[in-house]
Design a protein around this nucleic acid. Structure first.
Lengths: 352, 352
DNA sequence: TAGTGCGCTGTGTGCGCACACAAATATACA
DNA sequence: TGTATATTTGTGTGCGCACACAGCGCACTA
């Protein structure tokens, strides 16, 4: 029953060679007579050799160096989540001895991206986790021959690099579609919806995601409820004199018979903090499981939160690299993160 | 930066003893002078010793024996999912060399449970994954002194065993509540809902889950929409002459102005196979991501599927045991599986 | 005083693998 | 035929740990 694991030694004996030769075949180190190589490979197949990862990593006795090249989350709060996911995965897999070297760049400054990218050459890592926001420059960087043998995981933005580059990302467009779907369920065909772009700190813009999300939202209604009205209002005029409260009150006053509101950023709680009482009849959809959002969800003031799992993005990147570099497993080339629909009745399972 | 890992040898040197003594302290094997033990422990703490799992499991060179004691899925199809989850987790963690010994019992026969339980004593495992459907008997079994050092994971049914027994399960009641919530969203307060208990094969009854689920469904409406009507219809009279189609047609005919239908088993597709066209205006909620259910979801005929992650139950059980037995991590004592809300717009992320 | 047993401590070996190095064999050339 | 060189193969060591076993000092007994 408990069939003994096949070892290199077993293969060596079966093939009539030494363990050293088997080792050379396994690692393609050359210096093996072609016919011997063939014989060893045949035996390996026949005995279904599975390397002992434990012994292998122990003997290897080296740490896996991973470099990240991500936007600075001091300047764009969104990027703190992938960062946290990475850290969590690393500390949760301490036994694989991984070191991560973070390189943060200013997400609106190409020059800074290039500068940070260049730093990576100072100490070539085994793998790179990169958010290729500057597509052209990222592509050029990754094509450098010094990175030939470096595993690459793309985060957030896809890049056509063919080969065996892994992409992990969320589908922002689809999250907007989903928001539209949730808002319009069981509503009349001629309803009015409000799309609120709510940013409180100017610097946290992460424009691309939000724009894609909003495009998905619009498109959903165009395709499925063409007779409905979708209004967009944005608050980002920080220098001006009127406050967010005033902006919201006026916006609501201007749009009577409002069926639903979607706040495209994660700041839904800001809306409820200010004019929660004046929204009794509108369905409200928000994004991201911030503590304050969860509070309002539990109180029944937010109807749906869409969880984009931003942390999981970083987490999966590390898990993927472990699978690739240590466990030698096959990994999927493209991995989208789930879009969880969270309501009062199931929030407990998502908020840990 | 890349601080070297602390080894047993380092501790031995720092404490002025041999590695053997450190080993005895670590594993509490005794035969160490109390003051020496104290000294070694102090050094371990000071140097923050983290055992090298790789070397440890390699040196241990033993397979982890896990026994399962679960209902026979030949007789209750539900139980195939946890089984699959277990198998998946085991083959996905092959490098930890785990062997699983399955013991299936007839979920309606106490005698059979006891018989299978007794078989476990023939070869005491390192851990047991058990569905304690027969609470009293299971408790007695687990209290046997021969199982003193055996890790236990309870699946599906909770048992008060205090100590450090892990429970992994799904909240069937809450899944019924969630179904109620989804069905009644944006519907009038005096609507009519149908709860369909649909079993096609008599033997697959898994009564407890379904009953709890249905209780949750009823309670949701009692609390939130007391003026609504909830009707229950069950099809399980297999000996009788009329077919399922006839039953469904008659049921629908009998309940005009139907707002929503919840099929409490996983057999929602059976409903649509037969009378899909006659349900245009009713919202439909079902359970479990069976291929046929997904098909109807994508086609817009099922509105919501609630994913109870039954496979994940078995999967997590194994992961938990690895954490406990191999990685020596802390594990949460109670783990509920998420209840995912799946709609056409996000199904792709859940159906792998 | 030698012998015996016990508590405590140190040493040696092996887990399966990777890799450096030594050894054996084949090939080239004088 | 012998020597130098390249190619192919075998052996030895260490990764960090677990555990068996040997060794030590001490108290107690005959």
């Amino acid at each position: 029953m408990a069939k003994q694991r096949v070892r290199i030694k077993d293969i060596a004996i079966a093939a009539g060679v030494s363990t050293g030769t088997v080792d050379r075949v396994i690692h393609n180190r050359g210096n093996v007579l072609p016919e011997v190589k063939k014989r060893v490979e045949a035996v390996m197949k026949k005995l279904d050799y599975q390397p002992n990862i434990m012994a292998s990593t122990l003997a290897n006795n080296k740490v896996i160096k991973i470099a990240t090249l991500l936007p600075d989350f001091q300047k764009d709060a969104y990027w703190e989540s992938p960062y946290q996911g990475i850290e969590k995965a690393v500390s949760g897999n301490a036994h694989f001895s991984i070191t991560v070297n973070h390189h943060f760049f200013d997400r609106v400054a190409v020059k800074d991206f290039e500068k940070q990218a260049n730093k990576i050459f100072e100490d070539i890592p085994d793998a790179i986790i990169i958010a290729p926001i500057f597509g052209k420059e990222a592509k050029q960087f990754l094509k450098d021959k010094r990175l030939q043998n470096v595993a690459v995981v793309l985060i957030n933005n896809r890049l056509s690099l063919g080969e065996k580059v892994v992409y992990i990302g969320q589908d922002s467009y689809q999250s907007g579609v989903l928001a539209g779907r949730l808002l319009s369920t069981n509503q009349g065909p001629k309803s009015t919806y409000l799309l609120l772009h709510l940013e409180v700190e100017e610097k946290a813009l992460n424009a691309t995601h939000i724009h894609q999300k909003e495009a998905g939202f619009y498109d959903y209604f165009k395709e499925n409820h063409p007779e409905s009205r979708v209004l967009k209002r944005a608050y980002s005029e920080f220098q001006k004199e009127h406050t967010l409260t005033q902006f919201l009150e006026q916006t609501i006053k201007e749009t009577p018979k409002l069926t639903g509101i979607c706040v495209s950023t994660s700041k839904t709680h800001q809306l409820l903090d200010r004019i929660g009482d004046k929204l009794k009849n509108a369905t409200i959809v928000g994004f991201d499981l911030l503590p304050k959002n969860i509070e309002y969800l539990k109180a029944g003031k937010i109807d749906y939160l869409i969880n984009q799992n931003p942390k999981k993005q970083g987490f999966l990147a590390i898990v993927n690299l472990i699978d690739q570099l240590v466990l030698r497993k096959e990994v999927k080339a493209i991995q989208y993160l789930p879009l969880d629909i969270v309501v009062k009745e199931n929030v407990v399972y998502y908020s840990e």
